[in-house]
């Protein structure tokens, strides 16, 4: 019993981590119709930057903020200088972000080397707690809390604020939103930056949980893509529920069928697609 509880909890925490990536990915797609393959590279870059900042300052909080801010700025540059030039062209956008994977991951390899590293956990969350007969690392609890806070904040932003109303209007009908005087290009840039910020935040959280190594960004990108495909592109709720599903599938797959572990994620995804091509919560 304790085994199953532990596995379930581990799956849910990994799902929360995935949510940080999937939310940004889904947001960017919903708004700008960009499939950002470089999203995983932003995640990895965030983790490595946090490593450097925490080595310099010794503070986990500064590392989180610094890394996420730098990656968000990088996102602004990439959106303004590159993606803007191929707006509304799916294939060029995908190829462009694919090119950035090579560039960013190789820069990471160059600067931080190929040896797998683990980010140091904040001192406050380095221990573990005993809850209901199972031992729970408190860092995993922190991930759950951060994930829930981000989910709540995004939900509030989307449904309770003026910016959220603008976002929803632009998703529904960009041309009309522009006609009403909304500066959609500028909003796109900010939303892209927000997505990159979340990816880097996920990178920092994941850096202390699963660690950094060459290719880690792409590995988690594929899982995040599965999340948004299953949940429905552009849907926040879909990203949340999809993340938890994929987190659980990934964890139980690895524990129960190690040789088929990736298959246990992709096969259910294929089934969801066959039944509902737009994902569980997606709109056509």
């Amino acid at each position: 019993m304790a085994y199953w509880l532990t596995q379930t909890f581990n799956g849910l925490t990994f799902g929360m981590l995935l949510f940080l990536l999937a939310a940004g990915l889904s947001l960017i797609f919903g708004l700008m119709r960009i499939v950002n393959l470089a999203h995983g590279s932003f995640y990895l870059l965030g983790a490595y930057l946090a490593l450097t900042v925490s080595q310099l300052t010794g503070s986990f909080l500064l590392a989180v903020l610094g890394a996420a801010a730098v990656v968000a700025c990088l996102g602004i540059v990439i959106e303004r200088l590159f993606l803007r030039r191929v707006q509304n062209q799916e294939l060029p956008q995908v190829l462009l972000t694919f090119g950035f994977i090579f560039v960013l991951e190789d820069i990471a390899l160059w600067l931080w080397g190929a040896i797998p590293t683990l980010l140091e956990k904040p001192v406050l969350f380095a221990g573990s707690l005993q809850i209901g007969g199972i031992v729970v690392p408190s860092y995993r609890i922190l991930i759950v809390v951060v994930g829930l806070l981000i989910a709540a904040a995004l939900w509030a932003l989307q449904s309770r604020t003026r910016i959220g109303a603008i976002i929803r209007a632009s998703v529904d009908d960009e041309e009309m939103a522009r006609g009403l005087g909304i500066n959609t290009p500028r909003m796109f840039t900010w939303m892209f930056a927000l997505g990159c910020f979340l990816a880097a935040l996920g990178g920092v959280m994941g850096g202390a949980l699963v660690g950094m190594y060459p290719g880690a960004g792409f590995e988690i990108l594929v899982l995040a893509l599965v999340v948004v495909i299953v949940g429905g592109l552009g849907s926040l709720r879909g990203a949340f529920i999809g993340s938890l599903l994929v987190g659980l599938l990934d964890n139980f797959g690895k524990a129960l069928f190690p040789e088929l572990s990736l298959f246990t994620i992709f096969a259910p995804m294929a089934i969801v697609l066959a039944v509902k091509p737009t994902g569980l919560f997606g709109r056509a």
Binding site: R33, I229, L262, F263, A270, P277
Partner: peptide
């Protein structure tokens, strides 16, 4: 864009099998 993602994901099914099995 959905078609792009789905073809990617389906290819990853096979990749996952080849990589882990």
């Amino acid at each position: 864009a959905y078609f792009l993602m789905i073809t990617l994901a389906l290819a990853q099914v096979l990749w996952g099998l080849a990589f882990k099995w």
